[in-house]
C-alpha cells in the first residue's frame, strides 16, 4: 500500500464530487431537509418520538447515501475500464479501497456535522453524550455503507441493477434496526436476525449517545460496526480482480 496512491485516489474522487454540484448538494442538504420533515411530522402528535427516531435517522443517512454513491461509482469504474487500467498500474487494491473510504468518510463527516447541527441547534434534539462522537459514529456508518456498496457493485452489471440492491440489502436492515419498533420488542427470530445486521449497531450507537452520557457502550457498538465494515471491505477487495476472463 502506498500513501501517495491512496491520497491520489481520495483526491480524485473528491474532485469528481466537486464537479458534480447537484450530487454534492443533495448529499449535504437532503439529510437536513429530511430530518426537519421528520421533526415537523411529530411536532403536533408526539414530540418525544422525534427524540427516539431522530438519532436513528442520523445513523441511517450516511449508510444509505454512501451505499448508493459507492455502488454506482465503483460500478462505473468497472464498466468504463478505468478500474482495469488502474489495476494494470502500480496500484494496490487497498490503495483503491482506502482512497474511496477516505473521500466518502470526509463527505460523511461534513454531512453529519450539518445534520447534527440542524437536529440539535434548530430542532431541539437532546443529546446526552458528546456531540463530536455523533460525527465519529456517522463516519463509521458511512464507511459501512461504502463497504456494502462496493461489495454489491461486483454483482451488478448495470447501474440500474446496482440501485436495485438497495431494497435488497439496506431496507431489511432499516426495518429491523429499531427505527420502527425497538429491537427488544421484535419477535425472537427477527431479534436474532437484527443482532447480526450492522445497521442495528449503528442505530444503537446513535440512540445510546442521545440518551446517556456514558460513552463506553457507544464505543462498543462503533467497534462492531467498524469490524463489519472492514469485513465488507475485505469481501469487496476480493471482488477487485486484476485478471478477469
Amino acid at each position: 500500500m502506498s500513501l501517495r496512491v491512496t491520497l491520489a485516489v481520495a483526491r480524485r474522487v473528491l474532485t469528481q464530487l466537486r464537479r458534480d454540484r447537484r450530487t454534492l448538494a443533495m448529499l449535504l442538504v437532503l439529510p437536513c431537509l429530511l430530518i426537519s420533515l421528520l421533526w415537523w411530522i411529530y411536532d403536533d402528535a408526539d414530540p418525544r418520538l422525534f427524540d427516539r427516531i431522530g438519532p436513528a435517522l442520523l445513523a441511517i443517512f450516511p449508510v444509505i447515501v454512501m451505499f448508493l454513491v459507492t455502488s454506482v461509482t465503483t460500478l462505473r469504474e468497472r464498466s468504463s475500464g478505468t478500474l482495469e487500467r488502474l489495476l494494470a498500474m502500480p496500484l494496490g487494491k487497498l490503495d483503491f479501497l482506502v482512497g474511496y473510504a477516505i473521500a466518502f468518510g470526509l463527505v460523511a463527516a461534513v454531512q453529519s456535522i450539518l445534520a447534527v447541527g440542524v437536529s440539535v441547534g434548530l430542532l431541539g434534539l437532546d443529546v446526552a453524550g458528546p456531540l463530536w462522537l455523533l460525527t465519529v459514529v456517522a463516519v463509521v456508518d458511512a464507511i459501512l455503507g461504502s463497504a456494502l456498496g462496493l461489495f454489491v457493485s461486483a454483482f451488478a452489471q448495470t447501474e440500474f441493477q446496482a440501485v436495485q440492491f438497495m431494497p435488497a440489502i439496506v431496507i431489511p436492515q432499516l426495518l429491523l434496526c429499531g427505527l420502527l419498533v425497538p429491537r427488544d420488542l421484535l419477535p425472537d427470530a427477527l431479534h436474532a436476525v437484527s443482532d447480526v445486521l450492522p445497521l442495528s449497531y449503528a442505530v444503537d450507537a446513535m440512540q445510546r449517545l442521545t440518551t446517556s452520557s456514558s460513552t463506553g457502550p457507544v464505543w462498543r457498538d462503533v467497534a462492531v460496526v467498524a469490524a463489519l465494515a472492514l469485513g465488507g471491505l475485505a469481501l469487496g477487495a476480493a471482488t477487485l480482480r486484476r485478471r478477469t476472463s
Binding site: 483526491r11 464537479r19 488502474l86
Partner: peptide, 29 residues
C-alpha cells in the same frame, strides 16, 4: 506495472474530470 502502457478500446479515463485532472491523477498513481 509501470513499464507497460495500455490503452483499451473503451475510453478508460474519467469523463467528469478535465484532461489535465485525469492525467495528473494517473501521474500520481
Amino acid at each position: 506495472r509501470d513499464r507497460v502502457g495500455y490503452v483499451t478500446q473503451a475510453v478508460s479515463v474519467y469523463q467528469d474530470l478535465t484532461v489535465a485532472e485525469n492525467l495528473r491523477f494517473f501521474a500520481r498513481v
